[in-house]
Nucleic acid binder design. Structure first.
Length: 266
DNA sequence: ATGACTGGTTGCACCAGA
């Protein structure tokens, strides 16, 4: 089974490209992030036409996560248990954002995750990001306590570069989000809960990235960050036979600023 | 070529992204 994750940066702007890649790359299950639309606006037809069922969680133009599968989608859950809430405005009550969608596809419990950006260090959004990651870790830990043999894949845009090797320039990101010690500790806590990065062993750094800013020729110069990850439970990690970051999909006409990341499971 | 941001909207200016 071939499993992939891709921050698509607006599914309405990218759906033809995404559906085309699914077929070309022979992907069975794709988790998407940053669909940037409501459920009503989500373009379902191109996925159905390509032979995929699709589930989506989007409330407005922000965030949005989805899962497309041609091997079934069962037990769909919008948001994870204990997912923190957020509000940008004091007059608007805080609510869970469209950042987590779970479903079981051919025996794999898949979570499509779009971790909050953090905006700037010390901001309320940064605090929210750390709380979000801590809550996710606690819930994920419980999944494995309930069933140590569970095949779980937590995939998506983690908005953290876990090591200095995961950014093109340590200096360029000094003082920014994504590289701070608390964010890295929050990511490491997920690893400590027995989830492992199943892609890195097949795509060792340095200078291996999944995201390149649209500005300043960052992609041609390979000035990127590795922030998109597939984290597997022990039973899932055991099945991985191959993994890759598909840089080709960052090229061409109107690409996302992220590349797809995929794994093959035996 | 992989080429000097992009997508969205409470829209023609600004916000979020990272």
């Amino acid at each position: 089974m071939r499993l992939a994750t891709w921050n698509v940066n607006s599914i309405r702007a990218r759906v033809d490209r995404v559906a085309d890649w699914l077929e070309r790359a022979d992907v069975d299950v794709l988790a998407m992030q940053e669909t940037k639309c409501s459920d009503e606006q989500f373009p379902t037809m191109p996925f159905l036409a390509a032979g995929y069922d699709v589930v989506h969680c989007g409330f407005n133009q922000w965030n949005g996560v989805a899962i497309a599968s041609r091997v079934g989608i069962d037990d769909v859950q919008v948001g994870f248990d204990g997912q923190p809430t957020w509000s940008d405005k004091p007059e608007v009550e805080a609510a869970a954002e469209a950042r987590a969608l779970g479903a079981t596809c051919n025996g794999v419990r898949l979570w499509s995750l779009y971790v909050p950006n953090g905006r700037f260090v010390g901001s309320p959004h940064y605090v929210y990001k750390l709380e979000w990651l801590a809550a996710l870790r606690n819930t994920a830990q419980q999944w494995l306590l309930d069933d140590p043999a569970a095949q779980i894949a937590m995939v998506g845009d983690w908005n953290i570069a876990p090591t200095d090797e995961d950014v093109w320039s340590v200096e360029a990101y000094a003082g920014s989000t994504h590289v701070t010690e608390p964010e890295r500790a929050a990511f490491d806590a997920i690893l400590d809960a027995h989830f492992s990065d199943v892609v890195r062993p097949f795509t060792p750094g340095p200078a291996v990235y999944t995201y390149w800013d649209y500005t300043q020729l960052r992609f041609p110069k390979n000035r990127g960050m590795r922030i998109d990850f597939i984290l597997g439970s022990p039973a899932l990690a055991q099945r991985v036979t191959h993994a890759e970051i598909v840089r080709e999909e960052r090229k061409g006409k109107s690409p996302s600023d992220h590349a797809p990341v995929m794994v093959d499971l035996i």
